[in-house]
Amino acid sequence: MCIRKQTGVLALLVLVAFLPRSSLAGPEEDRLAFVAHYQARFPEVPLAEYANGIYALDADARAQWHSIEEFPPYEFSIERGGEFWSAPLPDGTHLADCLGTEVGAIRARHPRYAPELGVVTLELAINTCRSAAGAAPLDYSDGAMIDLTAYLAFESRGRVLDTRIPPDEPGALAAYEAGKQFYYSKRGQLNFACADCHITSVGQYVRADRIGPSLGHPTHFPVYRSKLGGMISLHQRLYGCVRDVRAKPFELQSEAYRNLEYFLSYMSNGLEINGPGARK
């Protein structure tokens, strides 16, 4: 009996040892593997540098970026965002009454999970507060929304991403898993997954530009894009990527993109928030 029991335990241990690491590993295991992948690929790049996106990998682009940062093209956006932040809402309250008076902490708390809303991004939180105060929600590609998030990102500079997946909220883990599945799934006529570019081909050239790492992607949005001559949100960037692989893009702040942001933000936990940023 005792021998049979020991044999059973031994068989179980052997089975566990030889099981392939599951694609459904926990978020923290995923994050550690994600970070390890980039560190193995670019051993000369310090982890904290990934908050700078492609500038962590490309010295020429980094030099150009430093020049751009002498007169940051997003400064006006921050200024306007500060004004929107201070403006009273129709019921006389302010966004601070809803989102919190410690301005620097707000960006760092998002995205988060709420059972009634799913993944709550900063943009969704702003519009939820506006609606509660009797104001019309802002369009997610609207300049005012981008300016507000630029202001809040700027106020959060120096803090680190701390995306949480509460263990007592099964919906949070489900949202994270949905974002993870999206990230690794091929779609569109080009049959590309996010991971094909940003994991497998990271650092490679696409015409004149190098592909940036996903690690650190969410830290610097919204960004001023020189080629567009304006600011864009993270979801506008995701929209562009999905369109570029010839899949029909999802709406900004759709559940698909919010889940993807949740996954990407969790992967970048511990990296410094340095938005708004400037990119080609």
Partner: peptide, 23 residues
Amino acid sequence: FQAEAALQQAERESEAWKRRVVK
């Protein structure tokens, strides 16, 4: 042709994505 190919892609990816997860 496109719609059918998209559906085949969806079907294939329902499992195939798992093999790409960084481990």
